[in-house]
Simulated scan of single mutants.
Amino acid sequence: MTHASARPEADYNRLTPAAQERFDQVMDLADNTTDNGEYTALMLAAAALAGLHIPYGAEIRKCACSCYCPAIFDPADPDAHVIEETGGYNLGRVQCPTCADRHRETA
């Protein structure tokens, strides 16, 4: 039996425009909060808006790839790629595993 991918992932483009707006607002709030409890609550709220079920304390990100990938995913995935560290905010820019693999530089 083949197992389904355990990667929690959602498609931003499948959200309604209103849900996209709420998701973006919640992620902006998460990016700017200094309270860890509030950050955790905002991550859970953003995940719920995207239709993802994440464990308490987990995080999600919208793919920051320049090809405009609509993936909402777990940035702790070992195949994800950090493009830019947090830079004084909470959310760094991270490529989803698919984009990290697709756009990997070949030597």
Rank of each mutant, 00 (worst) to 15 (best):
T2Y: 09
D11F: 04
T33C: 10
R102H: 11
T86V: 06
T106W: 11
R14A: 13
C99M: 05
C69M: 07
R93C: 05
Y68L: 11
Q20H: 07
A41E: 11
A30E: 03
Q20E: 08
A107G: 14
M27F: 04
P75W: 00
I83P: 00
G57C: 09
M27N: 03
M1D: 14
H3P: 13
Y89L: 09
A71L: 02
R14S: 10
D79N: 14
A71V: 01
A58T: 02
R7D: 13
D31V: 06
Q95W: 15
Y39S: 07
A4L: 15
Y68D: 12
D28Y: 09
A6C: 08
M27D: 02
Q25D: 08
Q25P: 03
A76D: 15
G92R: 09
P75F: 04
C67P: 05
P75Q: 02
T86S: 08
H81D: 09
A4M: 13
A47Y: 06
G87N: 12
T34F: 03
C69A: 07
A19T: 11
D101H: 14
T33K: 05
C99H: 05
A76M: 13
H3Q: 15
L29N: 11
E59F: 02
A58G: 10
A50K: 05
G87K: 15
D77R: 05
L44V: 02
H81F: 13
F23S: 02
E105S: 14
D74G: 02
R7T: 07
R104E: 13
P8D: 12
R22E: 13
A10V: 01
A6I: 12
A47I: 00
T16P: 04
C67S: 07
T86I: 02
T86W: 00
R102M: 09
A18M: 09
Q95T: 05
A19G: 06
D77N: 15
C67T: 01
H103L: 11
Y56W: 08
V82S: 08
D31K: 02
A4N: 14
P78I: 06
E21I: 06
A76I: 09
D31G: 06
C96P: 01
V82G: 05
A58D: 10
M27C: 06
R7A: 15
D11L: 05
A80W: 03
A76G: 13
R22S: 11
Y39D: 10
F23G: 07
N90K: 11
D101T: 13
T86F: 03
L42G: 00
I54G: 03
Y39F: 14
A58C: 06
M1Y: 14
R104S: 12
Y12I: 00
F23A: 03
P17N: 07
I60S: 05
D35V: 01
A48E: 12
Y68F: 11
Q20I: 03
A80M: 03
F23V: 08
M43E: 01
T40L: 01
T40A: 05
C63I: 00
Y56C: 02
R93N: 08
V26R: 00
A64P: 01
P75E: 01
G92L: 10
E9N: 07
N36R: 09
P17K: 07
T34H: 03
T33I: 04
C96Y: 00
E105H: 14
A64R: 02
L15E: 09
G57F: 06
L91F: 07
P75L: 01
C67H: 08
I60L: 12
E21K: 11
E38N: 07
